[in-house]
Design a protein around this nucleic acid. Structure first.
Lengths: 233, 233
DNA sequence: CGTTTTCTTGAACAGATTCAATGCGTGTGG
DNA sequence: CCACACGCATTGAATCTGTTCAAGAAAACG
């Protein structure tokens, strides 16, 4: 098997400040694989044998309830660790990871975790910071769902998407991967109907432009006002 | 200053498997303090200089939104670490910690964290497991808020409270600290009115017994049925 | 004993869901 | 290459769950 090139990960947050030799050591036991759009990198409840790093693409992290209801926990961006159940002392994955578009992923067997941790502590702190951030995000989301209206939650979700996966186009800022109304509903705890209605209304106001599996934000500022509820009298 | 006795923490989850000498070392830099009911151990946004361990009592972790809206993130039980912002690479506390009843708390300056971590790695894994669990809990809560009705959420919250702070009495299982309808509302993302109505209805059915700042669960089984929505036709 | 906090309960209201029907794009297979 | 089917999106109407508003009762506290 050919060695993976260190340039793949050099400079990426978890591997910052590591020299070439360290990167080579880290990549020695990594395996890279490609996942086609809509393929699962791993499934909820599955035993966690490995942890992952997203080299390119976008990944949707989805939790499914016993009754079939789904919730999108987050989207993973390029350069992020994911599926790090091992760092939280978990045996199984609490959610599924689905490629939102074609993805390239690095993965290591769990046994490498402690090894890398002791050799390169900066990876550990980076990972724990990541987990900490996700805890904050999730708690912020609980807060939002407790207090904010659907309209504000959807506006907020769009703004977050724009921030983490926005791509400038002539029309405005487009979300860089296919996203359905249903997806947005699963991010905000509502129904696709409500999302569709809101987006239609916003389209009339020139705030967004919709399309099949597509959202373009034309006026982030107005969206921010809605998110903060500054637009009602 | 008199040395704290090792028996205070011996056997507690984060300090399991550590010998007496290790415990003494850990306690060397710990400070213990008492907090009266409703006193704040630390406040949201405050700079995190220390991390904490709850020796006795119950602590309510509360997030306050800019608009004043409050959400109870969780209750901390005896024997749990809390306020471990340092482990998540955070500078400030993301929430306030309020003594639900009189509490005794150990606290260490943050600088001790890395020291303890390298000396006693088991503390680290325990802490990270704790954080991982809290992330899971929080995500489960998002899921619940997205999919479940208020009735189910409240039933669930009561069951969780019973599990983690239930005390058997002649009447049933009582929550071991004062808890208002408002508190339950803030745990479940609803209003005290709805909580009050539900509890009244359940009282009529003999499922719970209410009181001022008090809840006694008389029939956990029925509550479970409600929580899982197995009671409607 | 008055004041404050907590709790209860009715009535009106509203935001969002549910139900239902239809339209539109895209990809596929004949 | 076209037709058709499927997935995605839109939109109206009815419904409902839970909130909001309002008023008051009961328990604790100084």
């Amino acid at each position: 098997m050919p060695m993976l090139d260190r340039s793949l990960i050099s400079g990426m947050p978890p591997f910052q400040d590591l020299d070439g030799e360290a990167l080579d050591r880290i990549l020695r036991d990594a395996r890279s694989s490609r996942y086609a759009k809509n393929a699962a990198v791993f499934e909820q409840e599955e035993e966690a044998h490995s942890f992952y790093f997203l080299l390119s693409g976008h990944i949707r992290v989805v939790r499914t309830a016993p009754d079939g209801h789904q919730v999108i926990a987050r989207y993973i961006n390029e350069g992020e660790l994911f599926g790090i159940a091992v760092a939280m002392g978990r045996k199984t994955f609490p959610a599924s990871a689905i490629a939102a578009i074609d993805c390239v992923v690095l993965c290591w067997p769990n046994r490498e975790w402690t090894e890398l941790l002791s050799r390169f502590p900066s990876i550990g702190s980076s990972a724990y910071e990541t987990i900490g951030n996700r805890l904050q995000d999730t708690q912020a989301r609980v807060m939002e769902m407790s207090t904010a209206q659907v309209e504000q939650r959807i506006a907020n979700a769009l703004l977050k998407l724009v921030k983490q996966a926005g791509r400038k186009t002539v029309d405005g800022i487009e979300i860089d991967f296919p996203i359905t109304r249903q997806d947005i509903a699963e991010m905000t705890g509502t129904t696709l109907h409500t999302v569709s209605r809101l987006l239609s209304a916003w389209e009339d106001e020139g705030i967004v432009r919709g399309g099949r599996q597509k959202v373009i934000v034309r006026n982030p500022h107005k969206l921010l006002l809605i998110a903060e509820n500054h637009h009602r009298k």
